[in-house]
Amino acid sequence: MPNSTSAALAAHALRLAYRQSVVLDAVSVTIPAHQVTAIIGPNGCGKSTLLAGLARLHAPEQGQIILNGRAIQRLVPRELARQLALLPQHVLAPDGLSVADLVRFGRHPHTGLLRQWSPEDQAAVTDALHTAGLADLAERPLTTLSGGQRQRAWIAMALAQSTPLLLLDEPTAALDLGHQIEVFELIRTLTRAGKTVVMVVHDLVSACRYADHMIALRAGSVIATGAPRAIITPALIRQLYDVQCTLLHDPTDGTPIIVGAQRAL
């Protein structure tokens, strides 16, 4: 991957609201560079809102988000788009496009009216297609791909953006186990190549296995942050999901595994 400098992203005392209702309040988080950060929490706790806020899709009511020492509200949209890519949930491509057509959109922040396509743009697209394992499918219409391939095509688009930071909202939603692992392993590869990834993940076990750092949200507040092995405890799980459980550790890599889960009474 092209020069991924240490991209420090942090939110300070962030307050985000939709019209009247406050979704996130007093949220302060730091995203460690070159690592996978997972945002976890129950439905409606503000995970996606936090991700969108970090990508500046919502203007904060209070607090700010700092990227490389600068408030992101001050950045020109294109400048931010060269630092940070976001892949939301449930994305639908315009009709009739091929994989390569979609991936090319990722170059938008790097091109202009009179610099429409440079060799670097072409190289970035080719790279992204290779990294996502789609080189052979480049000219295929998106509609003919499987769900996992389509998700990788969108990730490839975000990769073509050549940003040090990648924000993914449930990148494995609606994928079967094999495709989930495929996408998570791709994400791992990216951080090894120097990218910083933040993802919202529903599946706690996958989050524990593939994340280096975790942010646990409940009702719009951060209740724990740190390495999965350090923060995931039966008490935290009960606090997050109102679920009682026992934790085991995977003998192969020590990842926490949840067993005997039942509703806490």
């Binding site: 949209p77 294109r78 788009a81 976001l86 892949l87 994305v91 639908l92 922040p109």
Partner: peptide, 18 residues
């Protein structure tokens, strides 16, 4: 030409700098 990118879902288009 600018609207071409705006055909993508709005959050994606915005995070591409549109």
């Amino acid at each position: 030409a600018a609207l071409n990118v705006a055909r993508l879902p709005e959050p994606v288009a915005r995070s591409l700098g549109v």
